[in-house]
Design a protein around this nucleic acid. Structure first.
Lengths: 150, 150
DNA sequence: GTGATTGCAAATCTTTTGCACTAAA
DNA sequence: TTTAGTGCAAAAGATTTGCAATCAC
């Protein structure tokens, strides 16, 4: 990969990936990449990321947030997780892992992946139907808060 | 609307469950229940069930199909499965089991549940986060390229 | 009759798209 | 320049909701 300017360093991850995928490192993409990839794994919805960008003083349209999230996903920088109809979550953690879904809060939480202590293991997977190939196995552990909420 | 024969046997399952839940066995609910519960396990979307009802000569509005699917779910007659944002699937199979999701066809397929030969087993489940209780563990095996039809 | 249920259309919500404008390269 | 990317607003789905008409009990 090509050398990076000092002022670009924070974006190194995003920049590199964008260049590899032929995506121009625009102000919006870099800003969103920074929100997403600086500071640990995250699970965001388009709406949430858009709001966060606004609070951080980054001007980006919601349409661009959607486009960017999908471009990042296609570029292998994000992973999409479906936990309930209606919303789409994007996960910055690309490792093999699964999720807790806090139903009441509509919030995702990582479960450590394979290799980690206490990692989930799925056994007894049946053969994939003829002509099909395995893409991914998602395990969603749905939990509810014990706080009363009828 | 044509009166229903109260002694109709095919509706026994639906009728009983509706009565237990205090839901009036209306023409629409009984007709949808019949489509859903007669003839094996099914995975339907509201739109699909609505179309099926129309083809069978049952007049039901889409809004009522949505309402009914949710009422059935609340009554424990159906289970909701989320596999991708956008659509909601309802599963008539209430046994403990998991799913293949055929991405290309947007189709769900049951994987035999616990107890069956070759059933999926999930090991190493971490403790549920403090204050939360386990609701359900969903395993979605995403596959592509199958030409199989349901 | 009385209250639950339905249907329709309008309203929401999330996501996508068309297109003129702006900005990388 | 040249072409990709952006923003806005309108469009497109999927689902919900308000309310008058209708049905079950």
């Amino acid at each position: 990969m090509p050398p990076l300017n000092p002022h670009e360093r924070p974006y190194a991850h995003t920049l590199t990936a964008l260049r590899e995928k032929g995506l121009r490192p625009t102000r919006q993409r870099l800003a969103l990449g920074r929100l997403l990839f600086e500071g640990g794994n995250r699970h965001v919805t388009a709406e949430a990321l858009h709001g966060e960008a606004a609070q951080t003083g980054v001007k980006v349209s919601l349409a661009t947030v959607y486009n960017t999230l999908h471009q990042f996903t296609d570029a292998g920088l994000l992973r999409q997780v479906a936990v309930d109809g209606g919303r789409t979550y994007f996960d910055t953690n690309l490792d093999d892992h699964h999720h807790f879904y806090h139903v009441d809060e509509a919030r995702l939480e990582d479960i450590p992946g394979i290799g980690a202590a206490g990692a989930i293991e799925v056994h007894g997977l049946p053969d994939v139907p003829q002509g099909a190939r395995l893409e991914r196995v998602d395990v969603i552990v749905r939990v509810r808060g014990s706080k009363a909420e009828a």
